[in-house]
Computed example of a mutant assay.
Amino acid sequence: MRSKIAKYLSVILCFILASCGGQTKKIDGVSFVASRDAIDAQHIQPVINLNANYASVMPFGFIRDLKHPELIFNTERQWFGERVEGVKQYIKVLQDHDIQVMLKPQIWVWRGEFTGQITMASEADWKTFEKSYSNFILTYAKLAEQLHVSLFCIGTELKNFTHERPQFWKDLISKIRVVYKGKLTYAANWNEYETVPFWSDLDYVGIDAYFPVSDKKMPSVEDCLAGWEKYKPEIKALSDQVKKSVLFTEYGYRSVDYTGKAPWVSDRNMKGVNVKAQYNATEALFKTFWNESWFSGGFLWKWFHDHDRVGGENNTMYTPQNKPVEALIKKQYSLNG
């Protein structure tokens, strides 16, 4: 009888927390990079070992340049993990291992030009691009519903597109809501999130959190904590204003010197390996946000399927795999219980 009463009280408590907008668990996620190959249990076990409870799956659409109005996606020329067939397979394997999914379709511009600068040259081109983008997003929104995906991201770092065509985005969100019943977010770049015009229509304020937090070659945890003092109140103010919790749709640091100075820079000219700087910056981010009630968690950038062959202490890129920071993330993600 006592166990039944305890179980009943637990259910009531969960109902009260849900009714009040409370959240008992953070989203402790990884950005699971698409590859040429299918995945299986051996590729998911390192994610489980990290104590992650979410993974973002990221299919791609491609445009030729920043003004090109036709978005190409789901073609045989793309890697398996970048198209519909691969997305289905990735999601099913992740879900089979109790990892929830954020489906996050993204645009890649040829030669890696920044998506935030996409701007069409004419009204006719905008209409063509909008139709193409809607087809891309709604294809994956329907797939997300079919596979019971928990969270769907409607776009990533599209500053000009969102600012110049706000009504399109309002209409697109309405269309997504018809075919997909889960939670929605948008992945705003760190320097655009305050001006996104449709946060009230979504479920989370999504931010790709590459905020500059230290100019030092070897930033300490304290340096990075000080760097966050400028941004944290602004992020919380927006959360309060739109009455939505904040989700870091991407976060992470490269294992290089000056990692906190311009965390969005991904070119290979930065060659000074510094795994301690990556560790310190990540620790400061966790200390700044993970205990806040208005903060829902985030997705680590980035995680590759073939764990034993990537990262390592001589690697200068974002992945934490096989670096000291991996143990820090594992510890932080274990706190969800």
Rank of each mutant, 00 (worst) to 15 (best):
S3V: 13
S3G: 14
A6W: 11
I12A: 09
C14N: 13
C14Q: 15
L17Q: 10
G21H: 12
V30F: 05
F32I: 02
D40W: 07
H43V: 01
H43S: 14
P46G: 06
I48S: 03
N49L: 14
N49W: 05
N51C: 14
N51W: 12
M58A: 10
R64P: 03
D65K: 13
N74F: 11
R77F: 12
R77S: 11
W79V: 01
F80G: 04
R83Y: 12
E85F: 01
V87T: 15
K88W: 04
Y90N: 09
I91R: 12
V93M: 10
V93T: 13
V93W: 03
V93K: 01
D96T: 04
D96W: 00
D96L: 01
D98A: 11
L103S: 02
L103Y: 07
L103I: 11
P105W: 09
I107M: 09
R111G: 13
T115M: 03
T115C: 09
I118F: 14
T119M: 14
M120Q: 15
M120P: 08
A124C: 08
D125L: 00
D125Q: 06
F129W: 12
E130A: 09
E130V: 05
S132V: 10
S134T: 06
S134I: 06
S134P: 00
N135M: 10
N135V: 00
N135T: 10
I137V: 13
T139M: 07
T139L: 06
T139W: 02
K142W: 09
L143V: 00
S150N: 13
S150D: 14
S150G: 14
T156A: 11
N160E: 05
N160P: 01
F161P: 05
F161N: 10
R165D: 01
D171L: 11
D171V: 07
D171Y: 08
I173K: 09
K175N: 04
I176F: 06
R177K: 14
R177F: 08
V178R: 03
K181N: 09
L184Q: 02
L184P: 07
T185M: 05
A187S: 15
Y204F: 13
V205G: 04
V205D: 04
G206W: 00
D208K: 00
V213Q: 05
C224G: 07
C224L: 06
A226C: 06
G227R: 03
W228S: 01
W228V: 04
A237F: 00
V242P: 02
V242Y: 08
V246E: 01
F248T: 01
F248S: 08
E250P: 08
G252T: 03
R254I: 08
V256T: 15
A262G: 04
A262S: 11
P263D: 11
W264G: 04
R268N: 13
M270R: 15
A277Q: 09
Y279M: 06
N280I: 04
T282M: 10
A284H: 10
A284V: 13
L285W: 15
N291S: 02
N291E: 02
S293A: 07
G298P: 03
K302V: 12
W303K: 06
W303M: 05
D306T: 14
D308K: 11
N314S: 15
N315Q: 09
N315V: 03
N315K: 00
T316N: 14
T316Q: 15
M317I: 10
K323Y: 10
P324I: 14
A327Y: 08
L328S: 08
L328A: 08
I329G: 07
I329S: 04
Y333W: 15
S334E: 05
G337P: 02
G337S: 12
